[in-house]
Nucleic acid binder design. Structure first.
Length: 402
RNA sequence: GCAGGGUUAGUGAAGCGGUCAAACACGGCAGACUGUAAAUCUGCUGGCUUAUGCCUUCGCAGGUUCGAAUCCUGCACCCUGCA
């Protein structure tokens, strides 16, 4: 226990790296493995905090870059911190803004999906003239997506912003590369991310010393290295040797090799600290990540996809906009315990989404969030019961039929 | 009754002799979405289809022309003025 933060492992599997545990933070505990719902701008899009809670969420992850731009991290600080500001009295995380190095930089306007074997052409990396984020060794210059104004993020500023926002768990400022960046660039970028990790630690020490009465805010170091085993292991060793409270595994990962890559990293990282995987939530990825030692993970997908009409079922992820649902008065998923499925039909939800009614986004988000959290709850229970591998096999066979 | 204006694909609306199966918007259909520039984006949207291909379409009927959604005549309906 360090100032209200701790991680305790309850059950470890023999045959895989999967485990259950509890992360304790000043705002409460997280039973792991856990899906952390994304609330980028201090709100889970289209959902009230009560609905997020009722869907089973234990924690929310917001974004430093977005809150720095609007409303300003100092506003969140003055409000009493993220939890109080957004009326989410449970644990919170903040991402460092590292993702925006890619999404506004070389990945600007590009699909950042973790697909392998796709056609590789110039279209996949944004030309420099179109980018809104530019990296150098000291930091990143962003052009705001809101008004085009220039902003400079450094590891120090990211930590200052995250500290002001007041999340229980912060991440180091890292550079997220594209899978398509050449090896030489991955090496260069990794060195930069490592230098930044040290600077983040120095900065957080300074802030803790200056404000000793604040609730403890944990800092997780991020491991990069793309799809290269040597780089991933090197990164795991380097970041793992630094005094972080936990770790984030991020960056470009070929979907098919997710489990393998996470295993490399987790073999290098200290086993007794929590591991967060950034940006995943597809069922197969969830099973792979957890089997490879991941304790928590976050993703925009369940809520983003919900707003566009897709909903999770045990048999895949169809789209309610389909004409076949026009007169389908069944719930999205039979026997689903979520509020949406208890009260609304596919026909109604299809109508709401088609009509652009915000309630549609809300109800769809409730279902998808509930579904993914329920899946992770079931996985957690299966690890405890020793049936994880059975669940993994039967669940995935049904969801992804050949 | 007189004088103008109008009638284009599911809807609205461009086009005003050939390059028009007909811009564009919406709607419809299908697909995408993995640390949220995402209530967004992409494709298709007369029929048949492998098609640089054929067939049927621009109120209705007829005509001019090598060629008409585009010009002329008649008819039908709608709108605006004046009666």
């Amino acid at each position: 226990m360090k100032g209200g933060f701790s991680f305790e492992i309850n059950k470890e599997m023999d045959s895989t790296l999967a485990r259950t545990g509890v992360i304790k933070t000043p705002h409460g505990s997280i039973q792991t493995p856990a899906f952390i719902v994304v609330g980028t701008t201090a709100t889970v899009k289209a959902m009230l905090p009560e609905q997020v809670r009722e869907a089973g969420a234990q924690a929310v992850l917001a974004n430093a870059y977005h809150l720095y731009l609007r409303p300003g991290h100092e506003v969140v600080e003055q409000a009493g911190g993220l939890s109080k500001f957004m009326n989410w009295p449970e644990p919170t995380f903040t991402d460092s803004g590292g993702f925006q190095v890619l999404s506004l930089g070389s990945g600007f306007k590009k699909v950042l999906a973790m697909q392998s074997g796709q056609a590789i052409d110039e279209e996949v990396i944004a030309p420099v003239s179109e980018r809104r984020a530019f990296v150098d060794d000291d930091g990143v210059t962003f052009k705001s997506h809101l008004d085009g104004s220039s902003h400079r993020f450094t590891p120090e500023l990211s930590i200052q912003v995250q500290h002001a926002i007041g999340a229980d768990i912060m991440f180091t400022f890292d550079e997220l590369t594209s899978l398509l960046d050449p090896y030489d660039y991955q090496v260069e970028s990794l060195a930069r991310t490592h230098a930044w990790a040290r600077r983040c630690i120095a900065e957080v020490r300074k802030l803790r010393k200056a404000q000793p009465k604040r609730p403890y805010q944990a800092l997780f170091g991020i491991v990069q290295g793309a799809q290269h085993e040597d780089l991933r292991r090197q990164a795991g060793q380097f970041i793992g040797a630094l005094p972080f409270d936990g770790f984030g595994i991020g960056g470009a990962i070929e979907k098919d090799r997710l489990g393998e890559i996470v295993r490399w990293v987790n073999e290098e990282l200290p086993a007794d600290k929590p591991k967060h995987m950034l940006g995943i939530s597809e069922p197969d990825d969830i099973f792979e990540a957890i089997a490879s030692g991941i304790d928590t993970f976050d993703c925009v997908s369940p809520t983003r996809v919900a707003r566009n009409g897709s909903f999770y079922t045990y048999d895949g992820r169809p789209d309610v906009n389909g004409a076949r649902y026009r007169r389908d008065f069944n719930p999205l998923l039979e026997d689903c315990g979520c509020y949406t499925c208890q009260h609304y039909s596919r026909a109604y939800l299809r109508h709401l989404i088609k009509a652009g009614e915000r309630t549609g986004a809300t109800l769809m988000s409730i279902h998808n969030t509930h579904f993914i959290i329920k899946l992770v709850d079931d996985i957690r229970a299966s690890i405890t019961a020793g049936t994880f591998l059975d669940l993994k096999k039967t669940w995935l066979q049904r969801y992804y039929p050949k």
